[in-house]
Design a protein around this nucleic acid. Structure first.
Lengths: 254, 254
DNA sequence: TCTTCTAACTTGTCGGTACATGTCCTCCCT
DNA sequence: AGGGAGGACATGTACCGACAAGTTAGAAGA
């Protein structure tokens, strides 16, 4: 049995989703919900806090809470897996394996993957297609434990979605850190993507970890600049208690 | 006078910054801080919530709160303000106003700002500098209500941080949607930034709204590709990050 | 009719209490 | 020496009461 405020926030979330509380409308007041559910006002406020952190509602002193317009939402797997993402937007994903090697890690890889001295990585290079058109070059370093599984998958032939196969094998991707910047296409990128060198690319550096925060992969994905965009929502409420759970940062690259 | 929990969170934040509570150490317990500051436990918890939302600390039932390693995580206000971001990474922010005009909105601006027919926008173009070096061209359309305030600020002379000045004037930025992509520099961009046309730029399209979800500004910021990067954390529990194809985003054309 | 002001309502802040539950150290027993 | 029970302590959840401050609609007045 989960906590009361979480049940309440789930109920409210459902109500927002099914149109009981449509976008632009105002939610019932704290006191009314407290009475209706036999909870205290504090508990109702906790439930509201959950929804505000997810960017579903907005609150302002003096008025009842506002239901915000729904924004596009992608699940963690849709964001993590190129194939699942492609499918979710109605495109046909494709891929061509360029290289898979087991080798010693670079210093950067060793650091990002928190490798012990002597440990090796599996490094996979793939060209990803969206409905037949090359849109991304993926260069991923997997920790030994995961890489060993990759070997079996790729040899099996169909490299449609490594992420899905890994999940079927019990690998759980739980957290990810993405760093996005713009870079000119290098010779390799340009050749694989079929564009001229120095064409603007969107680079996503990604570090993915399991539920225990152990690194699983470190990837350098380079998208055609006009093929993809990343969108981030965030919120700060008046009381500053509520902020979006995704923390967004700008930083100067090393 | 700001609220008690906010003063408390500021004090704790300072303590973390100045080494009183170094990364990896544990913070005092709720009860101890409550007694020390003459506050209730609930108020101390509110203060902790603010720091947790900023990613500075983590908590786990049964143990005192842990001070996390600083990971360049910045709060929304820093993300929103170029000046604050620059200061936080030890650079000196600068700016040069290129143009400020009151004019009829483009169709895109009218849509993003939800303008009524006939309403006008204030459009501000600025070149932003990091320690003297041009790194970003900012083109922002403000709704009439905000734009009128901007006029006073800019005429006052020091255009260090418009965001901070607006907040001092009582404008509350509550929600933001950022869309990041890579584009080649256009002639204007190239000239202002001092680079060649077609140089890769990182474009951030930003729409900011107040707690009532009324649009405040719509901005097109273009960074030198090698000057900045965006970092986002997400996890299976919470996700506010979205990847979209350019064809999808073109539903709201640039 | 138009304006002003009050009163009701709503969220924000702060105080308190109680109990549940997870963590971790210590002590005692085997 | 090793293992387990217990207890001290920490955070999480839930309750209550009170007042502050912003919003809004309607009553009262000009």
């Amino acid at each position: 049995m989960s906590s009361l405020y979480r049940q309440l926030s789930d109920e409210l979330r459902t109500g927002i989703a099914d149109g009981t509380y449509p976008p632009g409308s105002r939610l019932p007041s704290e006191s009314e919900l407290a009475e209706r559910y036999g909870a205290s006002r504090g508990t109702v406020r906790q439930a509201f806090t959950v929804l505000a952190a997810d960017g579903l509602i907005s609150s302002r002193k003096g008025t009842r809470r506002l239901v915000l317009q729904p924004t596009l939402v992608q699940s963690f797997s849709q964001l993590h897996s190129f194939s699942q993402w492609a499918a979710s937007i109605g495109e046909t994903p494709g891929g061509r394996m360029v290289a898979l090697v087991r080798r010693e890690p670079t210093e950067l890889e060793a650091g990002k993957l928190e490798l012990d001295p002597g440990e090796r990585v599996y490094h996979l290079t793939r060209l990803r297609l969206l409905s037949g058109r090359p849109v991304m070059v993926e260069r991923t370093a997997y920790v030994e434990r995961i890489g060993a599984l990759i070997g079996g998958i790729v040899i099996d032939g169909d490299d449609e979605s490594i992420t899905i196969r890994l999940e079927e094998l019990g690998v759980v991707f739980a957290h990810a850190e993405h760093t996005v910047s713009a870079i000119p296409a290098e010779a390799d990128d340009a050749h694989l993507l079929g564009v001229r060198p120095r064409t603007p690319l969107l680079r996503e550096l990604r570090r993915t970890t399991d539920p225990a925060n152990r690194p699983l992969e470190w990837s350098d994905d380079r998208y055609l600049g006009d093929a993809v965009a990343f969108t981030v929502h965030n919120s700060v409420q008046a009381n500053t208690l509520v902020r979006s759970s995704a923390t967004v940062t700008k930083e100067t690259p090393a």
